[in-house]
């Protein structure tokens, strides 16, 4: 079996020295894959992404157990700067555009870690505009005044400017209209197919995430409780009921929910 692009092995994350958030999470992302991390609020999705992208320190968190490998090399001692240089970029939850910079300036900051010539940067910029034609029309607007969808596109475009092999995408659907969400995921799929960018995707919107990813992991309370091919997860009865909101017929009683909880512990 070939080494995966990214493998996370039994990591534990503690915030503020006391709050245990991840309790041994392991998963891997193959080269060219789109892998979804699913789960509700507080499950540990964002923490997992931050652990990979080395952004925990600013939140006073640290990885206390386990290790993370990228292309077979340990990356848990690198800085975010080094990691971006090696091709792993995170797009943060809630878009986080530079509000007072224009859309184009936002994109250009994404190329900060590259020692590229002006020509190469311009080429990357054109490529981003080709994927997100909407951004081209808004290139001179202050990004704080653009719509939520445009900001999400700016954030993804900005990450693309770093010429990544892997993007960690945190909750791209947050606060966006379903139509825009579909549009953004179509572009993600396109980027994956044509630019060979691998994605690790953290999402609450399970149905969209499973539609566009190849493989999924379900996180709950800092543990991975279930994983599988996206199609098999989408057709799993429990996933359907608890994450997709589709139930099979009559309403379930609280007893069944309790049964499910018991079973989940056993799974973990």
């Amino acid at each position: 079996m070939t080494t995966p692009l990214l493998s996370v092995n039994g990591i534990e994350v503690i915030y503020n020295h006391v709050i245990l958030v991840l309790k041994g999470v392991s998963f891997s992302v193959p080269e060219g894959g789109i892998v979804a991390l699913l789960g509700g609020n507080g499950a540990g999705k964002t923490t997992t992404l931050r652990a990979v992208s080395r952004l925990l320190k600013g939140e006073r968190g640290e990885v206390t157990k386990g290790y993370i490998e990228y292309k077979g090399e340990r990356i848990d001692a690198l800085t975010t700067y080094d990691l971006v240089k090696r091709g792993v970029v995170q797009v943060m939850e809630g878009r986080h555009c530079f509000a007072h910079l224009s859309v184009e300036e936002n994109l250009l900051t994404g190329a900060y870690t590259r020692n590229a010539s002006k020509g190469e940067i311009d080429a990357s910029l054109e490529k981003v505009y080709a994927y997100f034609p909407r951004l081209k029309t808004r290139r001179t607007s202050q990004s704080g005044y653009t719509s939520g969808g445009e900001q999400q596109m700016t954030a993804i475009g900005r990450a693309l400017m770093a010429h990544p092999t892997m993007i960690l995408l945190d909750e791209p659907s947050m606060g966006l209209a379903p139509q825009i969400v579909e549009e953004i995921f179509e572009i993600v799929k396109d980027l994956n197919a044509r630019e060979r960018v691998s994605f690790l995707l953290a999402e609450q919107n399970t149905s969209v995430a499973l539609k566009y990813s190849n493989y999924g992991y379900i996180l709950e309370n800092g543990r991975i409780v279930m994983d599988g091919e996206a199609s098999s997860l989408a057709s799993n009865e429990d996933v359907k009921e608890f994450y997709l909101g589709v139930s099979s017929g009559e309403r379930k009683s609280f007893r069944d929910a309790k049964f499910y909880k018991r079973r989940k512990r056993w799974l973990a």
Binding site: S53, L55, G58, T79, T80, Y81, L83, V84, K85, V89, Q90, V91, M92, H96, C97, F98, A99, H100, L101, E105, N106, L108, T109, G110, A111, Y112, T113, A155, R158, A159, A162
Partner: peptide
């Protein structure tokens, strides 16, 4: 300059600046 732009980016949102590799 690119450095000046990075400075303004940090001023706006230092977490996001860090996430795209601005040290």
């Amino acid at each position: 300059t690119a450095t000046g732009r990075a400075l303004r980016a940090v001023a706006d949102d230092h977490q996001a600046a860090q996430s795209i590799g601005i040290p």
